[in-house]
Design a protein around this nucleic acid. Structure first.
Lengths: 124, 124
DNA sequence: GTATAATATGCTTAAAAGGGCATATAAGCA
DNA sequence: TGCTTATATGCCCTTTTAAGCATATTATAC
C-alpha cells in the first residue's frame, strides 16, 4: 500500500505534473536542461523533482556522456497503466509545451547541442 | 492544475485509500462509525480524513438524523473516471473488508442500529 | 591536468500534514 | 429540559515537504 501512496504523493506536486506533461507530450527522452528551459525553473529544482519521479518508478534515466536523459517508464501493471491514463486527462500548460517545442527544435540530429539557456539556478 | 494536485494529495495517504476502498468494495453509503469500526481508527481521525476526501470532491455526504452517510461521488469527467479506475487497481486490505462486512451486517433493513463498537477515540 | 558544463545533493528554513486529545455541535430520546 | 450518541473541529506537537542557495560530482574539451 505504501508504494501506491508514494506514487500519488509524487503526483501531488504541480512542478512534477508539469514535468510529466513534457514527457507525455513530446514522447521523447528529455534532459534536465531542456526541462528547466521549458518550465523556467532552477536546475536544482528540476533535479530534485525528477529524483522523486525516479524513486517512485514513474521516470527512468539513461546516461549519455555528460547528459542524462529521462523518460517515462513503460507501465508494467494495471495501476501504473491507469496512472498514465489519468495524467493524459489533465490539461497541459501551453506555455511549457511551446517552450519545450522550441527547445527540442534546437537539437541537431537528435543530439543536444545547446546547453541551459535559462539563467535560473546555476546552469550557466 | 491545483485541483488535480489536490486530488493526488488526497490519495497519497494510506488511511484515505483504506476509506475509499471500503466504499468501492461495499458500493454503499457508510457512516463514520462503520468506517472507524472497519479500520479500527479513532473517530476524529476518520472525520478529518473524510473531510479531505469531501473537499477534493471524491466523496459526498447525506445527513439522515443523527447519522451522516458518506459515499463516492459519481465521476463527471475523464480525470475523475480515471482516478476511480486507478483505485480499483490497488489491492484492498482484507482485514478492513472483513470487518466492514461484519459491521454492515448489523444493519436492520438498511438502517444503522448499532453505534460505534470500537472504543477508539471517544465515540463511546 | 585544468577549465567548463551538466547534473546531483546537503543544509537551512518555512509551510503543510497528520496524529492525539479535548471539546463543540447537532440530533434523538427519556 | 437534560442526557446521550454521532460527528466535527480547534489546538498542540512532530514529521514531511519544497524552495533557495551553495557546493559536490562527473564527464568532456582544451
Amino acid at each position: 500500500m505504501e508504494k501506491f501512496t508514494d506514487v500519488f504523493r509524487a503526483l501531488s506536486d504541480k512542478t512534477r505534473l508539469r514535468i510529466l506533461h513534457l514527457f507525455t507530450f513530446s514522447k521523447k527522452e528529455l534532459c534536465i536542461c531542456e526541462i528547466m528551459d521549458s518550465l523556467k525553473l532552477a536546475q536544482y529544482n528540476i533535479s530534485k523533482h525528477i529524483r522523486e519521479l525516479k524513486l517512485t518508478g514513474l521516470v527512468k534515466e539513461r546516461k549519455e556522456g555528460r547528459f542524462v536523459f529521462y523518460s517515462i517508464v513503460e507501465p508494467k501493471n494495471a495501476f501504473h497503466r491507469n496512472i498514465l491514463q489519468t495524467l493524459k486527462a489533465i490539461p497541459k500548460n501551453n506555455e511549457d509545451i511551446e517552450r519545450l517545442t522550441k527547445r527540442v527544435a534546437l537539437r541537431k540530429n537528435g543530439k543536444i547541442v545547446v546547453g541551459c539557456l535559462t539563467s535560473m539556478g546555476q546552469c550557466r
